[in-house]
């Protein structure tokens, strides 16, 4: 399952597609404190966070997660969106809280 498949199935907004149509998702990581995310998030994870700033993009790139889901209605400003495009990072958005989002992703991954 790709991040874009996830977005379509769960009605998440695709803020930036990046590599989201080709990467395979494996596992979920939730967290907002970046050093902790960096030490635990695995490559190809779906990373769910409320943290929406330039460091979010850096951490997504360094950990090589498959996509970032910004929960609780968080979004990136225009200059950060441009940066996400340039770095080809898949960014999805939802108004739902982190837990509900993770649960929905989990159910979907379990079925697939």
């Amino acid at each position: 399952m790709t991040p874009i498949d996830l977005a379509n199935a769960l009605g998440l907004q695709v803020a930036n597609q990046g590599g989201g149509d080709v990467r395979e998702v494996s596992g979920i990581y939730c967290g907002d404190l970046l050093s902790i995310v960096m030490s635990h998030a695995q490559a190809d994870n779906v990373w769910i966070t409320v943290m929406a700033n330039v460091n979010t993009l850096a951490v997504a790139e360094l950990t090589d997660v498959a996509c970032v889901i910004l929960s609780e209605g968080m979004s990136l400003d225009d200059s950060l969106m441009a940066k996400a495009k340039e770095q080809e990072i898949c960014i999805l958005q939802t108004d739902e809280p982190t837990f509900e989002t993770a649960l929905a992703v989990w159910k979907l991954l379990e079925q697939s």
Binding site: D32, L33, L34, S35, I36, M38, S39, M51, N53, N55, T56
Partner: peptide, 11 residues
């Protein structure tokens, strides 16, 4: 901004 967990040096 998401820093200050005190996990940087341990990482």
């Amino acid at each position: 901004l998401g820093f200050g967990a005190g996990m940087g040096l341990p990482n």
